[in-house]
Design a protein around this nucleic acid. Structure first.
Lengths: 123, 123
DNA sequence: CTTTAGATTAGGAATGATTCCTAATCTTGT
DNA sequence: ACAAGATTAGGAATCATTCCTAATCTAAAG
């Protein structure tokens, strides 16, 4: 456990439910550890999301986002402003059949899209 | 309707259910129209997916894939070899609640992940 | 069948996100 | 304290994709 990894984790926790990009995590982490490098942030985010300590959220047409909240939940993205909301897993049900013969289903990435309240009113 | 757009569409149709990348579409299109440029392929794929003529499939940690089949269906990706299978929409049911107050739900991107039969046996 | 305005193209440079490289530094177990 | 291995900073490199520009093509109107 290095100071850099702690700084990344702390930054992600401070970000709360804003689902920051790696760049944003970098900016936040720099406040506590000004010497930290962007590559270090990427590497720690990658490793932690592989190990399950955090969650990586791939976004079509945009940089990946990250989440310190690892409880089972899905995300809903505002296509106008890019804000990401959490939706608790118990509010989602997915049923699927017709999976190819012999394939082992591993898991789902569900990314819903919406126009968020702010963007609806601004529009 | 230009020769380039036709070549892209034709390439995508020839690719069948292989869900090719833009690079692969480029290679296929070049066979019929050797002068076509990669940027032209990207632009035509973008425009056609925006207009709904084709489908763009964003893949986490990989280049986008494309599909000439526009009937409502979802995709399942083998995490080992990157192959993408189609799953008919009628085999999928998604129910969701707890959408943020005032948000307008637009649609879902569902990308399931599996280990495909080939990869299971090779393993 | 010309004209012409607007769209599209080829080719390559530029961008954005991310990974890779290397020497230097740190961490951890002993 | 010390060696072995992991991690870091900094920057170069990579990959997918978009952007730029002058040249070419398309389609609609005469």
């Amino acid at each position: 456990m290095t100071a850099q990894k702690m700084a990344v984790l702390r930054a992600l926790q401070e970000a709360g439910p804003t689902h920051p990009t790696a760049e944003t995590v970098y900016a936040l982490a720099k406040r506590h550890l000004p010497s930290i490098a962007l590559g270090t942030v990427y590497r720690n985010l990658s490793k932690m999301s592989e190990s399950g300590e955090i969650v990586k959220i791939p976004v079509p047409d945009g940089p990946d986002r990250f989440d310190a909240e690892i409880s089972d939940h899905m995300h809903i993205l505002c296509v106008c402003c890019g804000k990401i909301y959490d939706i608790d897993e118990k509010n989602v049900r997915v049923e699927i059949s017709g999976v190819p013969e012999g394939a082992e289903l591993l898991h789902f990435d569900i990314m819903a899209k919406c126009k968020c309240p702010d963007c609806k009113s601004k529009n």
